[in-house]
C-alpha cells in the first residue's frame, strides 16, 4: 500500500498529539462570536496553526461543497471560513494549499453556488479542484473494514503533507448529522456504494483509512433539518469547533444545537458510535477538554 496513506493515517494522533492530551482526553477549541477570525482563535486554543502546518507543507483542505445550494443555508462550508483556513495555512508557510471535493451535483455549479473561489486568496499557491473523474482516485484496502473492504480514494490526499477536514455542520436525512467523518465521503469515488451497505458503519470505516490532521467544523450557520442539500431550518450558531480527534469534534458538535427540533448527543448518532467503537476517538464529551472563547 502507498506510504502516503500510512503517513496520513499514523501522523496525527501518534506524533502530533500532546502527551497530556492522551492522558486526559482530546482538546477541542471552540470559538464563537461575530468577528471574522473565529478559525484563528479556535486553533490558537489548541496550540496554534504552527502545530499542524509546517514551513513548505503541501496542505489539502476538504470543505463540503457537494451541493449547488445557496450559501447561507448551511449546506456548504462558508467561503469566509474556508478563506480563513487557507490564509492560516499560508501564514504558517504552506507551499501549496489545495481545496478539494468530489461534488454530488455538477462541479461547476457547486463551485459557483458555494462561492468557494473566494477562498483562493493567492492564485499561485492556492488551487481549487473538484474530483469528478475516476482516474483521480486510487483503490486502497480497508484492513479493518467489515462493510467496506476496499474503496477508491482521492490520489491527491496520498501525496500531500497535511489534510484539513473542513465540514459544515448540517443535518442528513440518512445519517442524522453530517459532520467531520461524514465529510470524508467527499474524498472517495463510489459514494453510492456506501448507501447500498450499512451506511453508518461504512462511513465510520472510512475514518480508519482517511485520517485528517485537523478537523475544523464550520458551525457559523447550521442546517438543522432538510439536510444534506437543503432547504431546511438554518440556525446561526456563529461557532467554529476545531480538534485533531474527529470523533470528539463530531460528538461535541452534535450537542451544540437541536437537530430536527430534538436534542441529541454524539452517542445518539450511529456513525459516531461506530467510529468510537472502531477506536477512532473519544465520544464522551465529559472526557474532552473543551477550550471555549468568545471572540
Amino acid at each position: 500500500m502507498s506510504s502516503g496513506i500510512a503517513a496520513v493515517t499514523l501522523l496525527p494522533r501518534h506524533l502530533l498529539s500532546l502527551e497530556k492530551e492522551q492522558s486526559a482526553g482530546p482538546v477541542l477549541g471552540v470559538a464563537y462570536g461575530e468577528k471574522p477570525n473565529l478559525v484563528e482563535k479556535a486553533i490558537e486554543l489548541i496550540g496554534g496553526i504552527q502545530r499542524f502546518v509546517k514551513q513548505g507543507d503541501r496542505v489539502c483542505i476538504k470543505p463540503n461543497i457537494s451541493f449547488a445550494a445557496n450559501i447561507g443555508c448551511g449546506a456548504t462550508t462558508s467561503p469566509a471560513i474556508a478563506r480563513q483556513v487557507v490564509q492560516l495555512c499560508l501564514d504558517a508557510g504552506a507551499s501549496k494549499v489545495i481545496l478539494v471535493d468530489h461534488t454530488i451535483q455538477d462541479p461547476n455549479l457547486c463551485v459557483e453556488r458555494s462561492q468557494i473561489e473566494e477562498a483562493v486568496t493567492d492564485r499561485k499557491k492556492v488551487s481549487l479542484l473538484t474530483l469528478n473523474k475516476e482516474r483521480q482516485f486510487a483503490e486502497i484496502e480497508i484492513p479493518r473494514g467489515r462493510e467496506l473492504q476496499s474503496t477508491k480514494i482521492a490520489k491527491l490526499i496520498q501525496s500531500v503533507d497535511k489534510l484539513i477536514n473542513l465540514p459544515t455542520a448540517k443535518s442528513h436525512s440518512a445519517t442524522g448529522v453530517s459532520l467531520g467523518i461524514k465529510n470524508l465521503m467527499g474524498l472517495i469515488w463510489d459514494r453510492a456504494y456506501l448507501h447500498r451497505k450499512n451506511l453508518h458503519r461504512a462511513v465510520a470505516e472510512l475514518g480508519t483509512v482517511i485520517n485528517p490532521d485537523l478537523t475544523v467544523v464550520d458551525a457559523t450557520k447550521a442546517l438543522t433539518s432538510g439536510g444534506p442539500g437543503g432547504p431546511g431550518k438554518t440556525v446561526e450558531l456563529n461557532r467554529v469547533i476545531v480538534g485533531t480527534d474527529v470523533v470528539a469534534v463530531d460528538s461535541y458538535t452534535v450537542g451544540i444545537t437541536q437537530w430536527y427540533n430534538k436534542s441529541f448527543t454524539g452517542r445518539s448518532v450511529k456513525y459516531i458510535v461506530e467510529a468510537s467503537e472502531l477506536g477512532l476517538g473519544e465520544i464522551d464529551v465529559g472526557k474532552m477538554r473543551i477550550q471555549e472563547r468568545r471572540v
Binding site: 443535518s171 445519517t175 442524522g176 433539518s225 430534538k262 448518532v269 458510535v273
Partner: peptide, 16 residues
C-alpha cells in the same frame, strides 16, 4: 414550500 416545520421524520442515523 415555505412550511416552516415540515413533518420530517427523524433520520435513522439517530438512536432514539
Amino acid at each position: 414550500r415555505t412550511c416552516e416545520e415540515k413533518t420530517e421524520d427523524i433520520p435513522s442515523g439517530f438512536i432514539l
